[in-house]
């Protein structure tokens, strides 16, 4: 399982300020911590970065790789910024990952970059027409992305398909559809297609104290479905791995010793599987 450290995102205030001021300190500190916690790659999310995106991505890639011997996941919709990042990327630490192409024609050129720079690339299974309705629609879009990748000369082994995790608080039925999509994606090629998710979106909009709970148990369910990579908090995922046996036991219908833990896990699994309706206080019911 590849954990792509998620913490370097322009959405976080501290990171945004450091990016704007070109202050290496916080960026390198966060990157280093994620590496130590078990990330195998670092996500550098600079947002749409319409102005000065190229320079910013270049700075991010070099700043991170100065202190961390890991490849970078280049996360922006700005084509030129991606290219700038790829040019300075130190491939000694592994091949970079472009985040992302999709079924939207505006994102097709990302495949060109993947081919030109021998980069890996995420294929987000959305089109221009809005969000996919179910696992089947995600698989249909995946097939189109795969066909297009071959046209552009990107090997299928270099693609990570991303079914797009949605918020459980507003789109509960999609949690299980994403798990099904992971299984379907894997069957679309031999060897199986690789898969990735932006994990923590599952708990976006949920109360702070239940976010890690949802993230962890959802991660384990996705892992059981065959997930290869997750853009996630490495520390949280390490915790998840320690609880994996407990979750697997409960999924198999067994009882676990810690009754309180059992309740939390069971209720969370029921919400993920859409067996009970989500509410912010679901753990208290």
């Amino acid at each position: 399982m590849l954990i792509i450290g998620e913490k370097l995102s322009i959405i976080a205030k501290r990171v945004r300020e450091a990016m704007m001021k070109r202050d290496k300190g916080p960026i390198q500190e966060i990157a280093t911590r994620q590496w130590k916690e078990g990330s195998g790659m670092i996500d550098a999310n600079i947002g749409p970065a319409e102005d000065g995106g190229e320079e910013l991505m270049e700075w991010m890639v070099t700043t991170i790789q100065e202190v961390v011997p890991l490849p970078i996941c280049l996360d922006t919709t700005n084509y030129k910024a991606i290219e700038a990042g790829l040019k300075v990327h130190n491939n000694e630490w592994g091949r970079p990952l472009i985040n992302s192409t999709s079924n939207d024609p505006e994102r097709f050129p990302m495949l060109e970059l993947a081919a030109k720079y021998n980069s890996q690339i995420i294929g987000l299974t959305v089109g221009r027409g809005g969000l996919p309705a179910d696992a089947e629609e995600r698989a249909a879009i995946a097939a189109e992305i795969m066909a297009r990748a071959m046209e552009y000369g990107v090997p299928l082994e270099d693609i990570y398909l991303d079914p797009l995790v949605l918020q459980i608080a507003t789109s509960q039925d999609h949690a299980i559809k994403v798990i099904d999509a992971i299984k379907m994606f894997r069957e679309m090629n031999e060897p199986p297609m690789k898969t990735v998710v932006g994990l923590s979106n599952i708990s976006n909009g949920c109360p702070k104290h239940i976010r890690p709970i949802l993230n962890k148990y959802y991660f384990i369910m996705l892992m059981n479905a065959g997930l290869d990579a997750a853009i996630a908090d490495a520390h949280e995922m390490a915790e998840a791995m320690q609880e994996k046996q407990l979750v697997d036991d409960i999924l198999a219908g067994k009882k676990i010793e810690d009754a309180e833990k059992m309740k939390v896990i069971q209720k969370t699994l029921d919400v993920i599987m859409n067996k009970t309706l989500y509410a912010h206080s679901y753990l208290e019911m």
């Binding site: 507003t170 309706l277 989500y278 509410a279 912010h280 206080s281 208290e284």
Partner: peptide
């Protein structure tokens, strides 16, 4: 017009 918030409000009131 949000089923999850509707459930949440009912929970809060019964709590």
């Amino acid at each position: 017009l949000d089923i999850n918030l509707s459930k949440q409000l009912n929970i809060l009131i019964t709590q």
